[in-house]
Design a protein around this nucleic acid. Structure first.
Length: 475
RNA sequence: GGCCCGUUGGAGAAGCGGUUCAACUCACUAGCCUUUCACGCUAGCAUUCACGGGUUCGAAUCCCGUACGGGUCACCA
């Protein structure tokens, strides 16, 4: 059997986007699940859009997510170079070969001319805005030019897509396209086809937005009689409005870096992204990298768009946060607390107990700040539902009793607070929900919140008494 | 507009011709547990698979049409 070799081919135009991360991740899964090689190839042929830090940023976040590659610019596997700008002579050579074979020709049209041509066709109501071929057959001139692929007549390009099944395009629907730009740099489709062949890529897994590029790449492959890789076009990731995730869409965080900055966990993101357009044959959705690799099967890639479900991401991240040790949770949250100026001068113990109180409901690191604010710094307000509860008999006496016991408490710790609650219960004959709930409400104004003794300890005696007074005034 | 692709509950998403086929997950609701809260556990939640026709003994599953949604038509990748 042929060696499995897949590639992720980003263009270094910015940070790692969630959609690209998904493409990378599925290629990675495919390689690991089939004992193949995962290659990262840099497609930097658009020199005007390249960002200097693009490659580093992309690769370091790939690594952060846990995607390690077998071959790339920093890890030669004998198929390099892995950066397209370093392979220009290769593309040049094959373009010239195509020229000699009569399968390509030089085009001297300027961008403006072409644009005008297209406009004119549009005005005439043409559906196909293909290049007019007016440079076809022109004698060689010493003028700047592009090289165009001469698309064969009446040919059908069919390929068996791993996820879509048989897909067919007719050559008449494709105009002669540029393979080499005026600056001698290849266009995407040409470089891609050449490199996929030379790097012996066996499977091409990419987003569905590339599906119409496939016939162009097949023409190149066919022209040289090169073996075709197997293609698989994954559905796009869409937002709640069914629109392709666009970098400008602000309803969804788009870049992996931002998730990192907010204190999401890479393992959780890996898990979440793997569920975007793929459904493992498993009842459980919380899966480790190894489990996902074992469960991965390209046949289970879905054919309908994957909706980015933020709630699900939050749920998954929370599940992972809950498995962290105290130390891990502390290092996840501390930077955010420091930045917000919470707990200045406190010992680590204080932070650990603070984090413990919220850990079960903590979705991502940065959220610790708002959870803290919500419970400890929100202006006290008695919720309607809570107020109704407080109308019950004996509640006021209980709160008063509790308050006086707290006032005379010397040592203020979760343990002594808990004892105090029990004592207040005994003194007023209250127990269970009728004991804890009135106190919870009197202290926080709400029927919901973290563990009571822990919460009160963190509030501190002064704020606690202040809130008790406010509640008593209303009863 | 041409060409490609899609359409299953509040949300994600399995199933792709037949006695558990409408899994599973999120959300929601109820109950249990913990002297409270939260966590956790259990249960409930689509007589129905965009719509219309057809094929078939039988269709969410195959075919055709309609509607809606998306992708793509560069010297961008």
């Amino acid at each position: 059997m042929k060696n499995i070799r897949v590639r992720y081919a980003p263009s270094p135009t910015g940070h790692l986007h969630i959609g690209n991360a998904r493409t990378a991740l599925f290629n990675y899964l495919f390689a690991r699940a089939n004992d193949g090689k995962f290659i990262v190839r840099i497609e930097d042929t658009d020199i005007s859009r390249n960002v200097e830090t693009g490659i580093d940023s992309q690769m370091s976040y790939l690594k952060w997510l846990g995607l390690d590659w077998d071959e790339s610019i920093n890890k030669d596997g004998g198929y390099g170079p892995y950066r397209q700008l370093e392979r220009l002579d290769i593309y040049q050579k094959y373009a010239e070969q195509l020229l000699e074979m009569g399968l390509a020709y030089k085009c001297y049209c300027s961008a403006e001319e072409l644009e005008a041509e297209r406009e004119a066709m549009k005005d005439k109501g043409y559906d196909k805005l293909h290049y007019s071929r007016k440079c076809l057959g022109k004698p060689d001139m010493d003028k700047p030019h592009t090289i165009r692929f001469k698309v064969p007549d009446n040919k059908e390009y069919t390929f068996n897509d791993l996820v879509k099944g048989d897909v067919t395009f007719k050559s008449e629907d494709i105009g002669d396209w540029a393979i080499l730009k005026r600056n001698k740099i290849p266009t995407y489709n040409f470089a891609c086809a050449v490199d996929d062949y030379l790097m012996e890529i066996s499977h091409v897994l990419r987003g569905e937005d590339h599906i119409t590029n496939t016939p162009k790449q097949l023409m190149v492959l066919d022209a040289f009689e090169w073996e075709r890789p197997i293609y698989g076009h994954m559905t796009l990731i869409v937002n709640e409005n069914n629109k392709k995730l666009s970098k400008r869409d602000e309803s969804i965080i788009q870049f992996i870096e931002q998730y990192h900055q907010k204190g999401f966990l890479p393992e959780a993101l890996f898990n979440f992204i793997s569920l975007l357009g793929f459904s493992p044959e498993s009842k459980e959705e919380i899966l480790s990298k190894e489990e996902i690799i074992n469960l991965f099967n390209a046949k289970r890639l879905s054919t309908s768009p994957a909706t980015f479900d933020k709630d699900k991401l939050h749920y998954i991240n929370n599940r992972y946060v809950k498995t962290l040790s105290d130390e891990e949770t502390l290092s996840l949250c501390k930077p955010f607390l420091d930045k917000a100026g919470i707990g200045e001068g406190q010992e680590d113990d204080w932070f650990v107990s603070l984090i413990k109180v919220f850990k079960d409901r903590l979705v991502y690191g940065e959220q610790i700040v708002s959870l803290y604010h919500d419970f400890f710094e929100q202006p006290y307000a008695l919720e309607d539902e809570a107020f109704a509860f407080m109308q019950q008999e004996g509640v006021k006496t209980l709160v008063e009793t509790f308050k006086s016991k707290i006032e005379s408490l010397d040592s203020f710790t979760p343990d002594t607070i808990k004892t105090t609650i029990k004592e207040a219960g005994k003194a007023t004959q209250m127990k269970g929900k009728m004991l804890f709930m009135p106190i919870r409400i009197a202290v926080s104004g709400s029927m919901h919140g973290p563990d009571l003794p822990q919460m009160m300890n963190l509030m501190g005696k002064a704020l606690l008494l202040e809130n008790l007074d406010k509640t008593l005034q209303k009863l």
